[in-house]
Design a binder for these strands. Structure first.
Ligand SMILES: [Mn+2]
Length: 563
DNA sequence: ACCATTCACTCATGC
DNA sequence: ATTCAAGTCG
DNA sequence: GCATGAGTGAATCGACTTGAA
């Protein structure tokens, strides 16, 4: 794998190396996905002179696709005019020949407009840029033409990037930032996986990306409409939403794409709901089981107790989403009275303390409590979701980065691509179980913690947030937590890594023989369902965890007690 | 996935 | 003169 | 007091240039 150094003194064309690495990777591994004319274009590009390719690579990193020829200067590229001609011949660049008064204006700075005499109208020189452009475009003021080129084949480039990364949003930046050491990725054998296996799947991915973009826009509209109702705009929006819904493709076999579809259905359902189109909303929610689809369906049909009950049972059976589960519990309890105890877990009470504190708004409340503990000679850290997930990510490093089929497709992945799929554990069950067995030995565990922390520090891992953790912290927490508790926490994490990574208590307070977890609640802040779920779980596992509610205190009184 | 997404937090309503 | 946002670059 | 839904703000690499306000 030939990733070169970014150092411009030794390698002034580093960006071209990146681009060509990507293009060659794609045309090599995704030959059957690319269309014939796409392959031909790529071949034509790769056959160009070094100068031409370098220029195209430079322009590709820039935001607009129109460029003033007189402004294109790159010291490392010689004979730019010639490179431009060459790129025009292979249709990677296009001269703007038709009169484009708009560009002749907008691509000039104010100073330039002034020096070609365009701002002589009184007051115009002081006006806002937008106003000037507007005024000049319709005036008969003569404005000299600029020599402008438009970059072509940007679409092809984004197709290649999409294929390379397996998603539409990562781009060439990753190469630079990785070479600069801003991010470090685990090196994984990529030979077992390709992002897309055929054109059909890939086209579906691109379609879904477009639909999602559209749906997000409509969702924003629906929110605005709620603020300021407008019956006509509402009807128009409803029509657009219906159009979008009718374009929804059949459920894809590819998990990453069906996840996208799930999100789309939720987005659509939510928009319909906001506009009061209950039936449409329900039918969208029916397209997916992703939370909170079932809860929304139930709420929208609250008058039909049979449906509500069926949905709630489904939730209890299948969902890991705390807020959905809490809804289902309440609903069923409410309907069936008390005789539902079979399903409910006995709930340990969550310890609660209340204090008053002079609150400093400029600092977040958690940090203030940390300082209070510091004043008492205790170490407290605000690490929220980084403690146990971090420990998990470290101890199970090898399993997480196992290069099984479908997990890794390119060198810039922070974790396996199927991490958030229901089968993440199943596809690695043997390895996970073997690891659990090994880690049951506390000496081995301690050993591994130290080794892995040293070996992997700084390497991106979806569970480890390096700035927030330290070996000392991990060591102390690990040795002071019974393995049974750790194992239970890790297994819960594994059930739904996305959902269960959130909701841990804010603070860890370190004491000599033990530690304590505390969820801070400032004025107006309430416990959320997933926080309650973790607190109860942790307490049930014998870990000291509690809540601390803060009430604002008038200035000037002092001291608060935290035993 | 940088006019986008995600999350924790915060506020406003209605019971 | 300064501040600010967008864009560029490694 | 409670539940709910909507809205906020911070954080996404960081230094540097440019043009506009
Ligand atoms: Mn909190």
């Amino acid at each position: 794998m030939a990733l070169q150094s970014t150092d411009p003194t030794t390698n002034p064309l580093y960006y071209l190396d990146y681009l060509e690495f990507l293009l060659e990777f794609v045309s090599d591994r995704y030959r059957n996905v690319l269309l014939v004319e796409e392959t031909q274009s790529l071949d034509r590009f790769l056959a160009c002179s070094l100068n031409a390719r370098a220029l195209y690579g430079r322009l590709l990193t820039r935001k607009p696709s129109y460029f003033r020829v007189d402004k294109i200067t790159y010291p490392e590229i010689s004979d730019i005019p010639n490179a431009i001609d060459e790129l025009i011949r292979v249709e990677f660049l296009e001269p703007v020949t038709a009169p484009r008064r708009d560009l002749d204006i907008s691509m000039r700075s104010k100073a330039e407009l002034k020096s070609c005499g365009a701002l002589r109208v009184p007051g115009l020189a002081q006006a806002h840029r937008q106003v000037i452009d507007q005024a000049l475009i319709t005036s008969d003021q003569d404005i000299p033409k600029l020599m402008i080129v438009r970059q072509r084949k940007r679409g092809l480039m984004s197709i290649c990037q999409h294929l390379f990364f397996g998603n539409p949003h990562q781009h060439l930046d990753e190469f630079v930032r990785t070479d600069l050491g801003h991010q470090v990725f685990e090196s994984v054998d990529l030979s077992l996986s390709r992002s897309f296996l055929d054109r059909e799947t890939f086209d579906l991915a691109r379609l879904l990306a477009v639909l999602k973009h559209w749906a997000t826009e409509l969702e924003v509209c629906s929110r605005q409409l709620r603020r300021s109702p407008d019956p006509i705009a509402r009807l128009d929006l409803l029509r657009q939403l219906a159009d979008l819904k009718s374009l929804m493709p059949f459920r894809s076999k590819m998990p990453s794409l069906s996840r996208l579809q799930d999100k789309l259905y939720l987005l659509l359902g939510q928009s319909f709901e906001r506009l009061g189109a209950t039936d449409d909303a329900i039918s969208c929610y029916r397209g997916t089981t992703r939370p909170p689809s079932r809860e929304r369906q139930a709420r929208l049909q609250s008058q039909n107790t049979d449906i509500v009950r069926r949905l709630c049972f489904e939730i209890l059976e299948a969902s890991t989403d705390a807020s959905e589960l809490s809804y289902a519990h309440k609903q069923l309890k409410h309907e069936n009275g008390i005789r539902l105890n079979g399903i409910q877990h006995p709930r340990p009470p969550i310890p609660r303390r209340d204090i008053t504190l002079e609150i400093d708004i400029s600092v977040n409340i958690e940090q203030q409590i940390v300082d209070v503990y510091k004043g008492q000679g205790l170490t407290a850290l605000h690490i929220e979701n980084h403690l146990f997930p971090g420990l998990f990510g470290l101890l199970f490093w090898e399993v997480i980065f196992l290069p099984i089929q479908g997990a890794f497709h390119h060198p810039f992945e922070r974790g396996p691509a199927d991490l958030y799929e229901p089968d993440f554990y199943n596809h690695r069950a043997q390895m996970f179980e073997a690891r659990f067995n090994m880690l049951a030995n506390s000496e081995y565990r301690a050993d591994q913690l130290g080794l892995l922390f040293g070996a992997k520090q700084g390497i991106t891992n979806p569970f480890v947030y390096w700035p927030a953790v330290s070996l000392d912290l991990f060591s102390q927490v690990m040795t002071q937590t019974p393995w049974s508790a750790l194992e239970a926490i890790f297994r819960r994490l594994l059930k739904d890594p996305k959902a269960f990574r959130k909701g841990f208590p804010d603070l860890v307070v370190l004491r000599a023989e033990t530690y304590e977890l505390i969820e801070i609640k400032g004025p107006g802040d309430r416990l959320q369902n997933h926080q309650i779920a973790w607190l109860e779980f942790l307490i049930a596992q014998g870990i000291t965890a509690s809540t601390l509610f803060i009430t604002a205190e008038e200035p000037r009184s002092n001291e608060c007690e935290l035993s």
